[in-house]
Structures are given as structure tokens and as C-alpha cells.
Design a protein around this nucleic acid. Structure first.
Length: 422
RNA sequence: CGGGGUGUGGCGCAGCUCGGUAGCGCGCACCGUUCGGGACGGUGAGGUCGGCGGUUCAAAUCCGCCCACCCCGACCA
């Protein structure tokens, strides 16, 4: 994409109404726009990052048998009354509205009820199970207080997966598959394995514990106690001596850390399926309950955490596979030979399928272009100038390095890909 | 929801204590000089000071109510 066609403009200063570093940087670099507290829009670059994060999640969900769906945002009150989750006394973070007729509708904060209800049309026999369905969709939760930029909003992008299994064993197997897939996802998103912890947390009504996936970070809202050797952690909310004994954790081995909850998996038993009448008939003709699980990942929260986690004093630093573009191509000066060189590099990179943003702004100074490349956090930076044109090379610098190198013009894409690999 | 803070052109701020008809930087437009780390000079456009009400000859400035935003706490199946 040409920078001249990108409508956003970067800013020198952080907005006064954001304290969170992730929001400050994402706004300064033009990725997101704040609409109101806890509500953000995603402009071109931000949208691309969300897509890239989503793609990784989608690939791993598909790999374990997930069906991607897209559930409605507007919710029919009737099915939520059946499970007793419509009442504001039961669920206090609903956004609700009304049809012109006066009928109440909800704005979805999760989707167990509608999905379970919808599956009644397709599931009746043991042959129809198990079912794994997930979506990447905007959720709405009327939080008492939004904070921390993208880390806690009232509207946010979430991946939610729901499993429907025939028995406990089948459920447990899938549950563990999801747990493994989650660890894979966080690793692919660039988080080191030693800062990601599967964490015991309160389980709610159905099981004693649920599993949270926590990534260590000073901006975390959660406090966890972790056992580095065992790669396990326990959330402060359930931390107690008898629980430690039960989990086989030794108090002396635990370290207290702040962490961000990026995923959470729950066993739901048959509460919702039974209530909504989603059951199956086994091979003996007996009617059986279906066991459910739900598995969430905060997609936009992850984007915020990645921004926060990798940023340096010059701005954002995206891991290669989630950056909106692989390389920032900047032409310095308006010498026709430089323009020609930059245009040809742009064409050849684009043809090779390398995502490139080409800063072709004739009126921008060299400094502005270089500063923007850093602020936007694009992994690679290619500079075309008088000097490079003379030598028949281009200058390449990685965002994470201080040193530039000159590389030959031919096979630009190949060299670049190789360098970005490491 | 309790406590604290803030609200002045697109953005960041000063002015408010001691009322007297709005200022700086960035950005934007035009001209010229520049062009490897957010260039420089000149000219110019753009706000009626979060909203409503009150006090006063006069309100960004004083008083009241409301709204929004930020931080801490509570909360976050």
C-alpha cells in the first residue's frame, strides 16, 4: 500500500485521555481511534493487525476440528430467560435495547444460549456429536469501568469456542486439545513460552477449577502465583493452603506476578444444554445429556498486550507475523532516480507477495518517514536514497536492530524474507 | 458505585487564585529555502473556552446542577 493513500496521520504527542501505553502508541501511530471509554475503532493498520491475530487463532481452531460460525449480536430474550441469564440481577453487564414494538433485545456478551438453541436443529443422535463451533466476533459487556486501553473495553473482539461432547472423557480430551492449541497460539503470537502460564482459577458452578491462560506483564490486572519449574500457576482469587495441597503445589516454589488473562477455558457440564433441551440419543436408544465447554480468547486484548509488550521508546514493535506490513519502504528526497528506484522496489516486493507500505509522500522529510517507520513498528525498513541508488543497493534495517545493511537490488524479496525469519 | 483529577481550534497545553470581549506549540493552507532521524523563515485560516442555569455593567475566570474522560478502589460468570 502507498502511504499517500493511507488516510491516517501519525501524531507526535500522546492523547491526554489515555494513560495506557498500548492505547497511547496505537493512537499515535494511527492504528485505532477512541470513540468513548472502552470503545475503540480500528483503522487500516489496526484492522490488519486484528486480522493477523485472528488468522493465527483461526488456523489453530480449525486444526482441532472447529467450525467457524458468526452468531448474531442481537439476542432473543426468551432463550436467555430459560437459562436464567436475562435478569440483570443474574448478569449485571448486559447491554439491552428495545425493538420499535417495545420488545426487549439483548446485545450479546457471550453465546452459549443461542448456539445451543440453534444446534437443536442438527443434533439429535450420538452420530451428530461431538460438535465444536467457534467464532471471532465483537462482544459487548457493560463493564463498571473500562481501563487499560485495549485490555478492558466495553466492546471488544473475542474468539469464543463451544464444545458439545457425548461424555466426560470426550469432553476432557477436547478440553486438553484446546489448552494445547491455546499455548501454540500464544507462542505463534510472539510470546515467549516462559511468560505464558496455564493458571488455575475459579471454576464456577460446574467444576472446581477453570483454566486461565495468563501472560506475565506489569500491566496485568490479575495476580497469579506461579511455579516456574512445573509451568503451572494459580490465580490469587483461589489461592489458599488447602488448594495448593490439592494441586500439588509447594508454597515455597511459588512466585507472585502480575499477568494479563488472554484466554480462559471452562467446563460447563450440561447446564445450558439440558435447560435448552439439547440432548442426544445414544446407540442404545437412551436419551443423554450433552456436556459443554466454552473457550475464550480476547483478540483485541491480545493486540493491546502485544503492542504493550514489545514496544520500545521509539514506538510499536510488531512481531513479523502480526505486523500490518512486513516492510516499510521509504524513498528519501525527490531525486527522480530515487523515486524510480523506490517505485521499482515497491513493484517487485508487491509482486513477490511481500506486504509493503511504501512511503511515497513527496512532501514528507526523511526524518518524518524514518520516525513513522519506527512508530508504526513495521518489522523491516528499506530506504532508497541517492547513496543507495548510486551503489545499486537498498538499505535494510530491522525494527529490532540498530544496524542497517546494504543488500543488492536483485532478489530483494528473497533476502528480506530470509532476514525477517530470524 | 465510592474517592481523587481533568475538560479552552484537529492534537498537546497556558490563561482561571486577583472577572474586562482568548494565547502558545504541533498540525493545516500559501510562498521561499531545505531534504538520512518528526527542517527553517514568512504569511494565513481555524475556537468563543464540555452543557445548562445563575450572579454581575461585564464570566474561560465566581456559584449551582448535569455530562464526558482519566486514575485508585469495588467489580470483572
Amino acid at each position: 500500500m502507498r502511504r499517500s493513500q493511507l488516510f491516517i496521520k501519525t501524531r507526535r504527542e500522546a492523547p491526554a485521555d489515555e494513560e495506557a501505553r498500548n492505547a497511547q502508541l496505537l493512537i499515535r501511530a494511527g492504528y485505532i481511534h477512541k470513540e468513548m471509554a472502552g470503545v475503540y475503532s480500528y483503522f487500516t493498520l489496526g484492522k490488519a493487525v486484528l486480522e493477523n491475530v485472528s488468522t493465527i487463532i483461526r488456523e489453530e481452531m480449525n486444526a482441532i476440528g472447529g467450525n467457524e460460525v458468526l452468531m448474531s449480536t442481537l439476542q432473543n430474550k426468551e432463550i436467555w430467560e430459560i437459562t436464567n441469564r436475562w435478569d440483570d440481577k443474574q448478569v449485571d453487564n448486559w447491554f439491552k435495547s428495545r425493538l420499535v414494538s417495545g420488545a426487549e433485545v439483548g446485545i450479546g456478551f457471550t453465546h452459549e444460549e443461542p448456539l445451543t438453541n440453534g444446534l437443536k436443529h442438527f443434533v439429535s443422535s450420538y452420530k451428530d456429536l461431538p460438535v465444536y463451533a467457534y467464532q471471532i466476533q465483537t462482544k459487548f459487556r457493560n463493564e463498571l469501568r473500562a481501563k487499560n486501553g485495549l485490555l478492558r473495553g466495553r466492546e471488544f473482539l473475542m474468539k469464543d469456542l463451544y464444545s458439545y461432547s457425548r461424555n466426560e472423557q470426550e469432553h476432557k480430551e477436547f478440553y486438553e486439545k484446546v489448552a494445547a492449541a491455546y499455548l501454540k497460539i500464544f507462542k505463534r503470537l510472539g510470546f515467549a513460552e516462559d511468560i505464558t502460564y496455564r493458571t488455575f482459577a475459579s471454576g464456577g458452578v460446574f467444576t472446581e477449577f477453570s483454566d486461565e491462560f495468563q501472560i506475565l506483564s506489569h500491566v496485568g490486572e490479575d495476580t497469579i502465583f506461579l511455579d516456574k519449574a512445573k509451568k503451572l500457576a494459580i490465580n490469587k482469587e483461589v489461592y489458599a493452603d488447602e488448594i495448593l495441597v490439592k494441586l500439588g503445589l509447594n508454597k515455597a516454589d511459588l512466585v507472585e506476578e502480575k499477568a494479563v488473562e488472554v484466554g480462559n477455558i471452562f467446563s460447563l457440564g450440561s447446564k445450558y444444554s439440558d435447560a435448552l433441551g439439547l440432548v442426544y440419543v445414544d446407540d442404545q436408544g437412551r436419551q443423554k445429556s450433552i456436556l459443554m465447554g466454552c473457550y475464550g480468547i480476547g483478540v483485541s486484548r491480545l493486540m493491546g498486550l502485544i503492542a504493550e509488550h514489545f514496544a520500545d521508546d521509539k514506538g510499536l514493535v510488531w512481531p513479523v507475523n502480526i505486523a500490518p506490513f512486513k516492510v516499510y519502504l521509504a524513498s528519501l528526497g525527490n531525486d527522480p532516480k530515487v523515486i524510480e528506484g523506490a517505485e521499482s522496489a515497491y513493484t517487485s516486493l508487491t509482486r513477490s507477495g511481500v506486504g509493503v507500505i511504501y512511503d511515497d509522500r513527496a512532501l514528507a522529510t526523511a526524518g518524518e518517514k524514518l520516525v513513522d517507520a519506527d512508530l508504526m513498528g513495521i518489522p523491516g525498513r528499506i530506504v532508497i536514497s541517492d547513496k543507495t541508488v548510486e551503489q545499486g543497493v537498498v538499505e535494510l534495517k530491522l525494527r529490532t536492530s540498530d544496524e542497517a545493511q546494504l543488500i543488492p537490488n536483485n532478489d530483494l524479496a528473497g533476502t528480506l524474507e530470509k532476514l525477517l525469519q530470524d
